[in-house]
Design a protein around this nucleic acid. Sequence first.
DNA 1: GCTTGACCTTGCCCCAGGGGCAGGGTTCGA
DNA 2: TCGAACCCTGCCCCTGGGGCAAGGTCAAGC
Lengths: 239, 239
Amino acid sequence: MLTIGQLAEYAGVTIKAIRHYHERGLLAEPDRDSSGYRRYTAEDAIDLVKIRTLAHAGVPLARIKDLLDADPDTLTEAIAEVDQNLQDRIAQLRRTRDQLAQLRGGDRLFVSPEVADYLDDLRGLGASERQIHLERDGWILMQTASPEDAGLWIAEKRELMTDPEFRALYLEHDAAYDWPPDDPRLPALADRTRDWFTRHHSRSECRPIHNPTVARLAAQSQPGASSPAWDRLARLMEG
Amino acid sequence: MLTIGQLAEYAGVTIKAIRHYHERGLLAEPDRDSSGYRRYTAEDAIDLVKIRTLAHAGVPLARIKDLLDADPDTLTEAIAEVDQNLQDRIAQLRRTRDQLAQLRGGDRLFVSPEVADYLDDLRGLGASERQIHLERDGWILMQTASPEDAGLWIAEKRELMTDPEFRALYLEHDAAYDWPPDDPRLPALADRTRDWFTRHHSRSECRPIHNPTVARLAAQSQPGASSPAWDRLARLMEG
DNA sequence: GCTTGACCTTGCCCCAGGGGCAGGGTTCGA
DNA sequence: TCGAACCCTGCCCCTGGGGCAAGGTCAAGC
């Protein structure tokens, strides 16, 4: 005959857990000895190991209670289901491990793989970290607003980036962020941008994505991400 | 700018969870729009994905709060630790899967592998299921009382079982359970058992294990597992 | 304009699966 | 005979949310 502590050690659970199982009606209360201590038999040990195994597998205690006095077929069926569940959880934990690894390494976790590739391209092109940050945030907003459209747009934008002229304009817009608002290069840049637009407008629909200053779109919904030079540039291109 | 529902969908968490993170101070409360709705930025989305990833990895929310504004080195260190933790949990779940599989197939889960092998031997010898059940319970009690001794004893007992004479006596004791208490075979069995004991007593120490009726030992601590014939047998061997 | 359904707000209580502590009694070995 | 280690009940506490109530808001269709 075992004390509660011996039983707990045998089954690898805490004394508290055993008393909890008694309260929930999972494990029958055993007889007490003369001093009121619980005294367990080997049968109790077997029941407890069953309970422990199912509980570790994540089966709710209420369900364990039902399973313990179910017929063997039902039990077998339930065990198969629980096992499937367990496999799913293992797979989920593995996915979490991958994501955890990405938490250390940049922005890949926060955007779709296509956008992440695009951001890497920008980095390779020499875009500023500020600009990349702005783009990332813009794409996050687009992805939440309309994931399918964002998928199309990013494809178009990556194709656009293969045009050397567009790339040059993009990088110049990026650099213009820090220019003084009366910098003489701004009107010239606005002209070249407008020129590029008129030349390429026919080829594609007039979607916001074709605006090279897509980052500004994001900036509009994200307060405080513009600069005097960019504001001037926007006015020059509009007028 | 995102509503709480959009943000929740993006990050793959529930609205409730986001509000919970606000309450715990994990995620900053964003500005509200004119009707009091929360409006989130891309930064919030990034923070939330971080929180979600760590939370899915099982990091307590209080610790996540600390990690979010820790320096990168501390974070890297913590992520390594969390990942180790995750690996351990995956290994643990795999072990639980194995145990779950054993729940379907007999007694192996409840006793040490050596005892399980021994019980299989008994089954192969033709012992009754009642007897095997009794032995199993006896070994469970021994294992909890003294795991090391149980390990030694089971080794000795398995060696003993290689003696054909002992095996025969063992099986006859098993069969005697159902005999009437005045069965004439009982005195003869008692004699042969005592004879065997005197012949083998010298060879080994006088440990309880050497009593072939080890099952009865268990029976004594397990009420109602004896029979009239066994009781008579016990009296015959004592007297 | 009006309704309908989907969305948002706060506030409250509920759950599992125990942990911890108080405040007491018991047993066992030296 | 004394201290350590064990046992008892009872109570409140924790995490990580879920559920529901009782409203306010918004966009679409009729």
